[in-house]
Amino acid sequence: MKIHAVDRQGKEHTLEGRDGWSVMEILRDGGLDIAAECGGACACATCHVYINDGWFEKLPTPSEAEIDMLDMALAVEPNSRLSCQVICSDATDGIKVTVAPE
């Protein structure tokens, strides 16, 4: 189960996802610079990523709480998500994400 992630310097990383873990956790453990200050509690919006290449539409729709919290993120685009709320599974194998600026 792969995650293709582009960091803030534009470098692409291919990381191994883990079933049931959030994309934020995989990015953080993979050494990408992502603050995730609230540790995945959907309370800080510092785990903001863009979901690329048609993957946005394939994900389950974000919860009301996530949509609200995205209001506290910077540079939000229509394909923005909070990576702590995107959960790895077989269905996300190969997902492409870009870490948003801070």
């Binding site: 949509i67 685009e77 923005s80």
Partner: peptide
């Protein structure tokens, strides 16, 4: 200005 026509 806000990124969407909805507010938390």
């Amino acid at each position: 200005v806000h990124h969407r026509d909805g507010f938390r």
